[in-house]
Design a protein around this nucleic acid. Structure first.
Lengths: 209, 209
DNA sequence: TCACCGCTTTGACATGGATCAAGGCGGTGC
DNA sequence: GCACCGCCTTGATCCATGTCAAAGCGGTGA
């Protein structure tokens, strides 16, 4: 999302930062002093309730911004899914940058737009779709992520991750995937690898009829 | 959100537009050629499924932007809740404006940030909260909207609106409100007017314990 | 005044998904 | 090879919310 040329200029205003796998490096509610760009690895973005209920609101990977959804404090928590590398900008540094490189604001804006579109789709999914529809939507989302539109998809997360992403329990995820397999819409080749056997049917299901 | 001074400069690049109450003036999936600023009235922003399931993703009122969450096509539909006045900008006009008044991009960015924070809260609500928690969150949101923090709140929408906003049915909304009344957390003074009797308890409930 | 209409409430019942509780299964270390 | 451990699956049951149906109830117009 950021081209390498800008990247090096940006680097003057930023600190490189490595994060261990599994570390929660942004805590919801803390002062949002920093802004990040992911340079390698994957990040899980989520919100927690006091009793432990978790909603994953998205993921970020290399090139993605982290911290757009922030006022005075962070509105989310973020955890490294594996070893992670980041560029960190202070908010004030970022503001200087925006003045110096107006293009940056465009890029931020584009990313924010994309995230907002994504967020609205997820609100529809979480508020109105059934478990089957959620799983179908999820599988197709993974499918579309692949540049070659592979019908064999490798799930980038565990059942717990899927459940927290879709607003379900792990049991429902497991049962629903098996139901889709019984109906020959998918084949579960390995625990984290699924083959999409009937794309049109999955698409119809995902959009709800 | 836009100051009157800028407003008049912006006006050169925009067309004023009046919309009748109830009219759906943005259809999800149509080419996102325009961008809007609400100048008076209220807008309901929502997504629909083919069988009629509806998820309201937000509302916009005077001063708010409409169209941030758009790629090539609109990712949502928008309906006038009452008589409505808008400024319409063509996308290309907006891009010219951005160059001419860099401040605009800042404002857009701020609004986008706010919307993203809001969206993440709603994903948690829709994915993980119970009906009671959703209603408590909703009532407090209305409460916070009032500049004077009135504990008597006037619901700006019907039961159907609340249900579609919270991902519930109208029956559940009705029953849950009555349950909260029985427990003396609220008093339903009129159908669309509710008094918050126990703010701390509502806040605890809304955040889930 | 009364009938009608849309919205809301209430009741009875159905059900999708959650919860609780065993197993199964694959990977790792001894 | 075997025991352990984390994750996943499967089964039994429960329950919050949805669905279906029937009254209220307030506003409007004849």
């Amino acid at each position: 999302m950021i081209d390498p040329d800008d990247m090096s200029r940006l680097a003057q205003y930023s600190h490189r930062l490595a994060v261990m796998a599994g570390k929660t490096f942004i805590q919801e509610g803390e002062p949002a002093n920093d802004f990040f760009i992911v340079t390698s690895g994957h990040v899980k973005i989520f919100a927690l309730m006091p009793d432990g209920r978790r909603q994953i609101t998205g993921f970020a990977q290399s090139g993605d911004f982290l911290g757009l959804a922030s006022g005075a404090t962070y509105g989310f928590s973020a955890e490294a899914l594996g070893p992670l590398a980041l560029c960190r900008f202070s908010r004030t540094g970022l503001n200087i940058l925006k003045r110096e490189f107006p293009d940056i604001e465009h890029r931020l804006m584009e990313e924010a737009s994309r995230e907002l579109v994504q967020a609205q789709k997820r609100m529809l999914l979480l508020g109105r779709k059934t478990a089957r529809e959620r799983l179908a939507s999820f599988l197709l989302e993974q499918h579309h992520r692949s540049p070659t539109r592979e019908i064999v998809i490798n799930l980038p997360m565990s059942r717990t991750g899927i459940a927290d992403y879709l607003g379900l329990t792990i049991e429902t995820v497991s049962r629903t995937l098996n139901a889709l397999q019984r109906e020959k819409l998918i084949a579960i080749t390995q625990v984290t690898q699924i083959t999409l056997l009937n794309l049109p049917a999955l698409e119809t299901l995902a959009r709800g009829g």
